[in-house]
Design a binder for these strands. Structure first.
Lengths: 120, 120
DNA sequence: AAAATATATTCCTATATCGGCATGTGTCAA
DNA sequence: TTGACACATGCCGATATAGGAATATATTTT
């Protein structure tokens, strides 16, 4: 086997930098393919291919408007990724909150004692 | 070109299901390679290769203990992924709050103008 | 209907896997 | 030093890309 198919796995679909750019672009609002092409300076076939992957993974929605096709990001499809990564959040956010706690404790102490210098 | 190298991009490294399993396993605490092999029922060379990718992307740390090697997940390396995905969070978690906002805006308008019908 | 416009698809090539198998490397024990 | 044990790496084959160029499909306009 080679790598997993991008068309079936959101993680793989999102692994592509250009596709991430497209999603970022289309989350603000609908855009037609041509607009994406000019915005990201990619070849039109390349954009169409990426859009296909994003479509098949449910990461974008499309609606037709005359001979244009309007794409927009379907954010909820990213939830699995978000949930998975969030599992690990506590393993680094605690470091930050620990710093915050120390800082707040220090401020509180300053308020109480009147000191204002940094003591280790 | 083919796909981007898994060894240089965290997104690609994490796109592999087995590697995600390994990260989930190693975030709880250190494990030696053999333990990963038995826990995930993979071949040892396969595990070693995945660990190499995870190592080179900074997703795991390793320390030697005798002839064993102890690996653990380096959660902060996942922050870029988390930050990127979080950008889209408001586009689904706000579906509820958006309804709330609309309702509140409508109420506010009603209070101000006395109207009560929905106008776009 | 024919031309023009907007997208999508196909074909091709180079590359990067992933798994399986064999082998190499490093460390501890006898 | 010679084994034994724990991992890592190399080689192979099959597959899935991503980009570029050319072509096909769909829709509007003339």
């Amino acid at each position: 086997m080679a790598r997993a198919a991008t068309t079936s796995d959101v993680f793989n679909a999102v692994a592509e930098p250009r596709r991430r750019e497209i999603l970022t672009l289309l989350v603000v609002g609908e855009l037609e393919v041509g607009a994406i092409v000019t915005a990201l300076r990619l070849d039109q076939p390349s954009v169409s291919k990426h859009l296909r992957v994003l479509r098949e993974t449910g990461l974008v929605h499309m609606r037709r408007n005359g001979r244009h096709k309007l794409y927009r990001t379907n954010a909820p499809a990213l939830q699995p990724v978000h949930e998975w990564v969030s599992t690990f959040e506590r393993y680094w956010s605690n470091q930050l909150s620990r710093i915050k706690e120390r800082a707040e404790a220090k401020m509180k102490q300053s308020r109480e004692t009147g000191t204002s210098e940094k003591e280790s």
